[in-house]
Simulated assay, not measured.
Amino acid sequence: MKADSTVPADSACTGGLPSAALAGPVSHAVSRVARLHRITAGRLLKGLGLYPGQEFLMMHLWDTGAVRQAELIKAMDLDPSTVTKMLQRLEQAGHVRRRPDPDDRRAVLVEATEESCALHAEVRDAWSDLEEHTLAGLGPAERAELTRLLAMVEENLCQETGDCPAR
């Protein structure tokens, strides 16, 4: 019988992981989970007329009120052109408004509109659904432990990259 050349000879030894990921099974798992979580969130947000990432921008505006566009770009930690495109789409949908900053006419203030209040509740509900779907089968103690462990992982990565978000 001829061996299948598409399957590595030692595939039974990898435990289902790609051979390059054998030295980092947790990192591989985190990457897979993050990818699937983003896909699931994207599906929920699509039903609200949002693209992934736009909900974070809106969450920031709902919590902070009007901010300069430059400050928003910094807070979102995204390329300015990406934030500009997000704002254009959100403005067209009636969720944000941009206006000159009265203290500095060169700057632009961005704020959530009154019309976005309904979206606020829908985003909160979508994130609640995502949370329940993501953590199905985990009890309260397991959820708390997972949250604690992920916070430690985030802190490790934050220190490594030197790119710690403001809390």
Rank of each mutant, 00 (worst) to 15 (best):
V123E: 01
R99L: 11
V83A: 05
T14Y: 14
P18V: 10
G42A: 10
P102Q: 05
S27L: 03
P165I: 07
S11P: 00
D77V: 13
C117D: 12
H133E: 12
A70N: 04
D101A: 09
R124A: 14
A23S: 14
L157I: 07
G53A: 04
T134I: 00
L48S: 00
K2Y: 07
G53D: 06
A9T: 09
K2E: 13
A3E: 09
E122W: 03
Q92T: 11
G53S: 03
A141G: 08
L72D: 02
A21V: 01
L22V: 05
Q92A: 15
A107R: 14
Q88K: 03
P8N: 10
A9G: 06
G139E: 13
S81L: 09
G49T: 04
L87R: 10
E111A: 15
D4P: 01
G65V: 01
L45A: 04
E114C: 02
G65C: 05
C13W: 12
K74R: 12
Y51G: 01
D63G: 07
A9V: 09
M59R: 14
L119P: 07
A41P: 00
A29F: 08
P52E: 05
T113M: 10
S19T: 10
L57A: 11
R106G: 10
H37E: 15
A9E: 12
L61A: 08
P165H: 05
P140L: 13
A66T: 00
D103E: 12
D77H: 15
T64V: 06
V26P: 03
A141L: 14
C164R: 11
A151V: 01
D10E: 09
R124H: 06
S116L: 13
A126W: 03
R167C: 04
L119K: 02
Q69C: 04
G49Y: 07
M59G: 05
G16K: 00
K85E: 11
H60W: 03
G16C: 01
A136H: 15
A151P: 07
C13E: 08
S31A: 14
T84F: 10
A121N: 03
R38K: 15
A23L: 12
R148P: 13
M76T: 00
L109F: 00
F56E: 12
V123K: 06
E122T: 08
A21W: 05
A166I: 02
D129C: 05
H95W: 15
E115F: 11
E115H: 14
K74Y: 04
L45K: 05
P80Q: 11
A144S: 13
